[in-house]
Amino acid sequence: MSWKKALIPLACVPVIILLAYGFRTDPKAIPSPLVRQPAPGFRMAVYDAGELSLETLKGKPVVVNFWASWCYPACYEEAPLLESTWRKYKDQGLMVVGVDIQDKEANAREFMRRFDFTFPNGPDPGSKISIDYGVYGVPETFFIDRQGRITYKHVGALTPALMEAQVQAILKGN
């Protein structure tokens, strides 16, 4: 068999390699184009506390968390961590903002009472803020530095180590 004929079966090699490459990728992990971009501004009616606008928080590091009461178990897992981080760092200027999406108000209030939320949370009628942040599902969390840039986006429940590292990063920047 001459070398030319060997080319026929060898033509399949690139396809096999490409498919094998597929094992290294995760079809569900889609990088957000918003990372390292200025955070989209939003106004939100906070439950029981008037209105909150991202613009007024300029100069402060902000953690924006998207959650929902129907998001079990991930949102329930990370809720205590959000509250404890807020209590720990609010004196250093950190803001934690919760955006509650596609939820019923009664259920959302029950959720906030259950985890004793003291940071501002509000609903997202029409999912406007969620779409503006390119949210796929809940929970998702955005870390915004003092310049108002998104430094990191996390999909899924937060872990203490990750939360600590990202909060330190946005606290440090000036």
Binding site: I8, P9, C12
Partner: peptide, 21 residues
């Protein structure tokens, strides 16, 4: 998945190899 890919490679090489042969 890996086993299927290996089998696919085997089928392709075997059959196109035979055609070439």
């Amino acid at each position: 998945g890996v086993m299927f890919l290996a089998f696919l490679a085997l089928v392709l090489f075997f059959s196109f190899g035979l055609v070439a042969y």
